[in-house]
């Protein structure tokens, strides 16, 4: 009496990710059934070898498919985080550009603090020997 290996195989196919299973389930089961039939005709040794090969191949592929699926998910979520950060950076740059270019905003707050001489640095050390005419140019 032949055991119904295809039924067991179909159950094992449920371990695949859903999209992969829907794509190949019927074909895989049919191919498996055809090869199983051939092996039964060749004897029990062939059947045992076939079952072992299939089990090893199937388990390796199932792990591989899930691995690909998880990696894709991780990549997608990482990209989402990156996109959000880029969006935030873009928004900040936009505000900065508006502040820098629009006279209604610019100069309201006085001088750029980055250009101001810290209190603990002497005038000569900070500005050198040049004669400062305004904030942006120096004549030596």
């Amino acid at each position: 009496m032949k055991p119904d290996l295809t039924r067991v195989y179909k159950k094992l196919l449920r371990l695949y990710p859903r999209d992969q299973r829907l794509l190949f389930e019927v074909e895989m089961a049919n191919t498996f059934a055809a090869v199983a039939e051939e092996c039964f005709a060749m004897g029990w040794a062939a059947v045992v070898r076939f079952v072992l090969t299939e089990l090893i191949g199937l388990s390796r592929e199932i792990v591989g498919e899930w691995n690909i699926k998880f990696a894709a998910e991780a990549f997608r979520s990482a990209n989402l985080v990156r996109a959000r950060s880029l969006l935030a950076e873009g928004f900040a740059a936009l505000i900065h550009a508006a502040y820098e270019s629009d006279s209604r905003f610019k100069n309201r707050c006085g001088r750029d603090p980055r250009m101001m001489r810290p209190a603990w640095i002497s005038w000569n050390d900070w500005y050198g020997d040049g004669l400062w005419l305004d904030d942006s140019s120096v004549v030596t």
Partner: peptide, 13 residues
């Protein structure tokens, strides 16, 4: 080489 069904369809995918 005798491919298992799983290996074959993994490669096909």
């Amino acid at each position: 080489v005798r491919l298992s069904t799983g290996t074959l369809y993994g490669a096909i995918r």
